[in-house]
Amino acid sequence: MQMAMFYQCNNLRLVGLKVVDSPNNFITLMGGTQIELSNLDIQAPENSPNTDGIEIAGSTSVFVHDSHVASGDGCIAINNHARDGGDGFARNISFENITLSNVSNPILIDQYYCPNRSCSFGGAEKTAVKISEITYKQIIGTTTTDAAIFFNCSRVQPGCTNIDVDQVNITSIVPGRQTYARCVNAHGTQKQIFK
């Protein structure tokens, strides 16, 4: 059950919404275009499972800004809800000017994602969203996990291409502990990472 589901909504503008403790995803966007979400305040305990803050599927031209998202799962999740592989893609996406606070897995692309462990061997990989032209810029803050960036991209699909990471400084909440980036089949550029 989603708190709010918007199906095939075009020119949607959602401003100033505050939601707390959704039993599942807070906001789900499916099949819309020209969507603007701003000044949102989304909150769930860090140990609450399956509480994506904003889930985007089959939508284009989505702009999220000036918002606070603290959820037990993905803050912003981009998913493929197509029945067959090859139909889903995520491209031309920018994550900029973001401050993180004690986040687990802050920057994550996982084309092997399989909820509830219900996928057959290789099933998640075959239906992976095709990912390209993704920018992470001016992201700072702290993480509870050692992997500040993890790109886990498929060998079956084209994987992840044209990923640009610039001015990212994510440090551990444990003083002196090092964070790292791990990339599997991801292609792109990095500049000024982990100052």
Rank of each mutant, 00 (worst) to 15 (best):
G72P: 01
G72C: 08
G74F: 13
C75G: 15
I76W: 01
I78F: 04
N79H: 08
N79S: 15
N80M: 07
A82W: 10
R83E: 15
G85F: 03
G86Y: 01
G88D: 10
F89H: 11
F89A: 13
R91L: 12
N92P: 00
F95N: 09
F95Y: 14
E96I: 13
I98C: 03
I98V: 11
I98N: 07
T99F: 12
L100M: 12
L100V: 07
L100E: 07
S101Q: 10
V103L: 09
V103F: 05
N105W: 11
N105R: 14
P106L: 07
I107W: 08
D110A: 05
D110M: 01
D110Y: 03
Q111C: 01
Q111S: 04
Q111L: 02
Q111D: 05
Q111K: 01
Y112C: 07
C114W: 07
P115Q: 03
P115I: 03
N116T: 01
S118G: 03
C119S: 08
F121G: 05
F121A: 13
G123V: 00
A124D: 10
A124L: 04
K126A: 14
K126M: 10
K126S: 14
T127W: 00
T127Y: 03
K130L: 09
K130Q: 13
K130A: 12
S132Q: 07
S132M: 05
E133K: 12
I134V: 15
T135R: 05
Y136M: 09
Y136W: 14
K137Q: 14
K137L: 10
Q138T: 13
Q138L: 12
I139C: 05
I140L: 11
I140R: 14
I140M: 12
T142R: 11
T143L: 09
T144E: 07
T145E: 10
T145Y: 02
D146L: 08
A147V: 07
A148T: 06
A148S: 13
A148I: 04
I149K: 03
I149T: 09
F150A: 14
F150H: 14
F151T: 08
F151A: 13
F151G: 08
F151V: 09
C153L: 03
C153W: 05
C153Y: 06
R155E: 12
V156W: 01
V156K: 02
Q157P: 00
Q157W: 00
P158V: 08
G159C: 04
C160A: 13
C160Q: 02
C160L: 07
T161N: 11
N162E: 12
N162R: 11
D166T: 09
Q167V: 08
Q167T: 11
V168C: 03
I170G: 06
I173Q: 08
